[in-house]
Amino acid sequence: MATIYVCDREGAERSIQGTDGFSLMETLRAGGFEEILAICGGCASCATCHVYVDAAFLEKLSPMSLDEDDLLDASAHRRPESRLSCQIRVSDALDGLRVTIAPED
């Protein structure tokens, strides 16, 4: 099981446990981070689960699809470490991952 450290929009940080096979978006929501709206339900269509990923982990994530890239482009808050959390699959390799929930668009 991976421990994931999450910084919410208020700047508070706490850790949650990830379950293999679930997306980071689902893990965040199950962990009580309601500000992750995930309006499209997790299929890379809405950009309401936007997070910033700790740079050290960016390389360990599956590559970004064109859809995801396009959606992030539509966000006013895109940064180099931006990802949609619905597109990140949680695994033990992500143990210690730090993410920050991006501001709302």
Binding site: E34, L37, C43
Partner: peptide
């Protein structure tokens, strides 16, 4: 907030026009 509902499908065939 029923995240994960499947009304628009999921995966590569998810509804292209959902937005």
């Amino acid at each position: 907030n029923p995240v994960g509902h499947l009304a628009f499908g999921m995966g590569i065939h998810n509804c292209a026009g959902q937005t």
